[in-house]
Amino acid sequence: MPEADATQTSQCFQLKGANVSLTALELHFFEEDAFEETLRDKIRQAPGFFRDIPLVVSLEKYEGPTAELDFFKLIGICRRHNIHVVAVRGGDEDQRRLARNAALALLPATAQREPRAPEPAEEAVEEAAPTTPDPAPTAAGPAPAAARLITQPVRSGQQVYAPEGDLIILAPVQAGAEVLAAGNIHVYGPLRGRALAGVHGLSEARVFCQSLEAELVSIAGHYKISEDLQEQGWKQAVQLQLKDDLLVVTPLDK
């Protein structure tokens, strides 16, 4: 946890939870020349974007034969263009074994993520109008887009995710519920569950709530659990933000 930084300097390293935004390459089939040509084409469109980026190869839409899936060649082509293949996502057992032989990390297919998390009353969710168009994506990642607005309580066991922008909730977030957003999270009611803002790494993201009773609050991977939140602003209207990698709670009326 962030607070530990100052006290435990003797440790060689520290593990931290992190959410990083990655680019996925959705592979439909693999043929050496066609692959390199397409890649070159893409890079030509946005040369700055592709320099030294980490890349995940998604096999969820792969239709070609497994035998043609030569990861060594694929990695080689990417490296020639300064792209670093770090992992594969999805794929069947054979494909994943090939990937592992090429020293790639294995990520689960997206469809397998949270298969049972109930989508809270979709019909109650209205998409807010998109914010004014941003001039250009900044270096920190794509700018947050549309906010997601929730008007019903987020109940225990439910998960609400705003993958691109802010999340605005006009009802309580109950204990055992989880709300996540790429941008800020606003809760106009008590926040009793878990709130994770800036899940793609946006460290400027903040969490606002009318009553802080949360199980956990996280901003860009830096989190505090309920026990550590009791000290300040508990059961009060507060905002939480990152200051020097430390999660800081400030009352909203001051």
Partner: peptide
């Protein structure tokens, strides 16, 4: 109370 909250969520979604 926690379990009731859970079942209310299921009523709303399932």
């Amino acid at each position: 109370v926690r379990d009731s909250d859970r079942i209310l969520g299921i009523l709303q979604s399932k």
